[in-house]
Design a protein around this nucleic acid. Structure first.
Lengths: 199, 199
DNA sequence: GCGGCTTGTTGACACACTGCCAACAAGCCG
DNA sequence: CGGCTTGTTGGCAGTGTGTCAACAAGCCGC
């Protein structure tokens, strides 16, 4: 991809930083954390390896920025959801989630499973924050309070279910989108009706 | 941590291999994949680093054996489940799962999230096999055929839900065991009644 | 247009870790 | 006790990472 063997060119810090970041997003999305070296990123950006460290400090910090980008999700149509009955809202939530996941596909699933670095405290924290946001969206969409810790935890669990189900669909191909949709709406309704009232 | 600074002692291959493996299980359980070097394992076992490579080949192969050990789960009381009605069986499944997870706690959750190496093909395969086993247990326990790919995939999704819910309970502490139990039984019943019939 | 300054950028150094392999010696057999 | 098998060791080469002093691109005053 445009090796650009020209002279060294001086870019604005923000521009150079973003250019490197985009290359890193692509590479980390394709391969795992361990299989991408900072040298690969530098070569991909046509830049000296030291410059990557200059802008992002450590390789792990670079990766943190990468998954932050990958997991940033558009709220899109979900926020302005019509106040219809619960069933149609659950339906809309499932549609929204499947749209989001299928759009980013490998990148999103790769990031949410920490494409090679779950267990690290910092990485887990960034992923956890992304799950928090998704959980908030789900709770507000079904019209439940976001405050309750227990409710929020259950919504996080639901995001976990949605993630693993999406993986069965997109990565393993053992489920159709319709089946996933049915599963996500049915379980969400069950949670709201039977499980959430206890909390 | 008996450092055992004595002479070099000659052990049976199986014994030495298992000794090293146990140390590796402990270390990888405490810290992530990247934060444990083969040197750490060797030092923990009071052994030269080269010996670790001799027995396990590569660091990743060692890790594969480690998560194989961590994810090996006793079928215990679940197989000889009384043919009671579906509700009590779902209840027994939740109890079984929570017992298994809480017993191994950090080790199991650490392994199932690939304590530092999801995204690697081999690691993912080993984890996937463990999920397959758990999914089979769930399906047979509720009295459904194990053959169907779609059913199996849904059971895998359910294991994903169980895992993420358990994490909310054990790692984040935002759910009680009773709440997790309620959630797992209710969603399982919903799946069996409403979602599985389609497949 | 030229010299100087700021600062984006580079190349190289030191360090850590991994995989590999020849040499060593512990324990058993004759 | 002498020789042999083989568990075990220490060191070497290769790769990846973080750091840092030195270089030069582009802008300013003159």
């Amino acid at each position: 991809m445009s090796v650009d063997v020209g002279q060294r060119r001086r870019l604005e810090p923000d521009a150079r930083r973003e250019q490197i970041l985009l290359v890193a997003v692509r590479l980390f999305g394709e391969r795992g954390y361990a299989d991408v070296s900072t040298g690969d990123v530098a070569r991909g950006a046509g830049v000296a390896r030291g410059l990557v460290n200059h802008y992002f400090g450590t390789k792990k910090e670079l990766y943190l920025d990468v998954i932050r980008v990958m997991l940033t999700v558009p709220d899109s149509a979900l926020t302005l959801l019509p106040p219809a009955d619960l069933t149609t809202r659950a339906d809309a939530i499932a549609t929204w989630f499947l749209d989001v996941v299928s759009r980013h596909s490998t990148s999103w699933l790769g990031a949410i499973t920490a494409g090679g670095m779950a267990g690290d405290d910092d990485v887990d924290r960034v992923i956890s924050e992304a799950v928090d946001i998704a959980a908030d969206r789900v709770l507000t969409a079904v019209g439940l309070p976001v405050r309750s810790r227990a409710l929020h935890a259950m919504a996080r669990s639901y995001v976990g279910l949605a993630t693993s189900t999406a993986r069965e669909w997109l990565q393993r191909g053992d489920l159709t989108r319709a089946q996933v949709h049915k599963l996500l709406t049915a379980t969400l309704l069950t949670m709201v009706d039977q499980v959430f009232p206890d909390a």
